[in-house]
């Protein structure tokens, strides 16, 4: 995927850069300095916010460090503790469970919305606006709204559940229901993904459908052989964005449930946060963060492999 992101550019026409031998050296040197100068903020940022964190995390994860004083070297103890910590495992599973349910759900909703908006409906701009608006609500505010919506005595959703016989209950005090409430919030932000899908659909040339129809393809075959392959870059993009956001789910658990009940919404990032900043276990939290980092790298590699095999970048150009 990365290969396709970098476009090789042809060298500039000779005419525009007439190089006398001696000045050429200085020019090239100056160009070199200039280029580096322009990207230097990023290089500093790379050192400060990528290289340093990786090195420092590895170091701290091998120590007992309470955020004050000198870190005490303890070898791999933090990792041993982590791998036998049932709460860490639960936090990991909660996070995977969240991402595993929320991401496909959101993408499915987004796809449906995009297909619907791609039809020739005159007032599509109105729907697009309406469907996009919830993504503008900050997550912490959305969490507040959901708390109000599902309050057992005064929340409309609880009343609705009660009215249809599902029982009017305090959803956030049941572990599984609390998980589902948070998952169910995700599709509300499907507007972003839907707009990306819509742009992808718009980029599919009508002539391809024409050709498919001439070959006798029905609607489903057209979808499978034209729409889906040509939409694959957008699907991949939404999938990557969704998964990385899903693995970093935090705010909902922090605001709505505090990680409960019975740790059901203790997501991995919340687990790291608690250990680092409420229990001052910086060494342990760094070990946990490193594990997440490695998992993320493996996931990225898998996605990269998949994208090489299945994602079609060229046809839509």
């Amino acid at each position: 995927m990365i290969d396709t992101m970098i476009e090789r550019r042809e060298a500039l026409p000779e005419v525009l850069t007439p190089p006398p031998a001696r000045r050429g050296m200085t020019r090239e040197r100056r160009a070199q300095v200039r280029g580096l100068l322009f990207v230097s903020p990023w290089i500093v940022g790379l050192l400060a916010f990528v290289v340093f964190p990786i090195v420092y995390s590895v170091y701290i994860s091998l120590t007992d460090y309470y955020g004050i004083g000198t870190p005490k070297f303890v070898g791999l103890k933090n990792f041993e503790t982590l791998f036998s910590d049932p709460i860490a495992l639960l936090a990991g599973l909660n996070t995977i469970g969240y991402a595993g349910a929320a991401v496909p759900l959101t993408l499915l909703v987004a796809l449906l919305l995009a297909f619907a908006m791609n039809r020739k409906v005159r007032e599509v701009a109105i729907y697009r606006t309406a469907l996009y608006l919830p993504t503008l609500i900050p997550l912490f505010a959305l969490a507040f709204v959901v708390i109000v919506l599902i309050n057992p005595s005064t929340g409309p959703i609880s009343s609705l559940l009660g009215a249809v016989g599902l029982g009017n209950r305090d959803l956030l005090s049941d572990p599984n229901l609390a998980r589902w409430v948070i998952i169910a919030m995700a599709p509300l932000t499907a507007g972003n993904a839907a707009i990306i899908f819509l742009a992808g659909l718009n980029n599919i040339p009508g002539s391809l459908y024409e050709a498919a129809r001439l070959d006798g393809a029905n609607a489903i075959q057209q979808f499978m052989h034209v729409t889906l392959p040509l939409l694959s870059p957008a699907i991949l993009f939404n999938l990557i964005v969704g998964i990385s956001a899903g693995l970093e789910v935090f705010t909902q658990g922090y605001v709505m449930t505090g990680g409960g009940p019975n740790n059901a919404t203790l997501y991995y990032l919340l687990f790291i946060y608690q250990n680092a900043f409420s229990y001052n276990r910086f060494g342990y939290a760094s070990a946990a963060a490193l594990v997440l980092f490695l998992v993320g790298l493996v996931l990225a590699a898998i996605v990269y492999q998949i994208s090489k095999r299945f994602v079609n970048y060229d046809a839509a150009a």
């Binding site: 992101m5 970098i6 964190p53 990557i240 990385s244 790291i272 939290a285 963060a289 993320g296 790298l297």
Partner: peptide
């Protein structure tokens, strides 16, 4: 182009790793 590859790679780095180090920084 080599550096730009690095930019793209950092696109995929999970951010939580940086929380504690940058906090201490």
């Amino acid at each position: 182009d080599g550096l730009f590859y690095t930019v793209l790679i950092t696109l995929f780095l999970p951010f939580p790793l940086a929380i504690i180090p940058t906090f201490n920084l």
